[in-house]
């Protein structure tokens, strides 16, 4: 039996199959928070960063819901390999989450106080790593339990990881203008391969 490998055909059905409600809710909440940050006045970079970082974590938690396939037991015997389906889901939801986060960033940059600037490259790195860790946690959970509760487990894992950085909040989430900004974000970049490798590992076919 030849393994069918035509990704283009798979995209429209997967778009219909993905549960877009959590990512949409996260997008609405992120954009709403961007509007509500220091309402009535311009936004300082410090407040904008808090909103952007929390939006990144929220979108990472929401993205996991797209990896859950309710018919996982049935589709396991389909000729399309699991890694292809899961990676297409990952890319679709990552694109949507990235768009939502970019919208939040644009909104906050437009509202930024005069004379200040947003340190965008570092913030993009942080959001990308948050999103990937959220996806990776859920991908591992979905391997064990192909139900929607796996997405909650993945989201909880991401939130626990985020909370475990709270005692070291200055070293992991630096304030704007921090002298250690570059060094800390190089460390963030060095973390980036870890969730990618986890995703590659978790998206393989489940052994029976």
């Amino acid at each position: 039996m030849r393994v069918i490998c035509r990704p283009g055909v798979l995209v429209p059905p997967l778009i219909r199959a993905i549960d877009w409600v959590p990512v949409s809710a996260a997008a609405v909440v992120s954009l709403g928070l961007a509007l509500v940050t220091t309402p009535g006045s311009t936004v300082e970079p410090a407040n904008a960063m808090v909103t952007l970082r929390m939006a990144g974590v929220l979108l990472g938690a929401a993205a996991g819901f797209a990896l859950v396939d309710a018919a996982a037991v049935t589709t396991a015997v389909a000729p399309v390999p699991r890694w292809l389906r899961q990676w297409i889901r990952t890319l679709l939801v990552a694109g949507a989450a990235a768009a939502a986060w970019a919208g939040t960033l644009l909104l906050l940059t437009a509202r930024l106080a005069d004379g200040t600037e947003m340190q965008t490259p570092g913030l993009v790195t942080e959001a990308a790593v948050s999103l990937l860790i959220g996806l990776a946690c859920t991908a591992v959970a979905v391997r064990q339990r192909p139900e929607r509760i796996a997405a909650v487990i993945g989201a909880a894992a991401l939130l626990i990881i985020a909370m475990s950085t709270l005692p070291y909040v200055e070293e992991v989430w630096p304030y704007p203008g921090s002298p250690r900004w570059g060094e800390i974000h190089r460390a963030w970049l060095s973390v980036l391969p870890a969730p990618l490798l986890t995703l590659a590992f978790a998206h393989r076919d489940v052994a029976r």
């Binding site: 409600v21 808090v50 929220l58």
Partner: peptide, 19 residues
């Protein structure tokens, strides 16, 4: 009654606390 409502609530709670 949606599975994602609690993570959103947690995040809103902490966002309010920080802002």
């Amino acid at each position: 009654p949606h599975l994602f409502a609690a993570p959103v609530c947690i995040l809103l709670f902490f966002w309010t606390l920080v802002q």
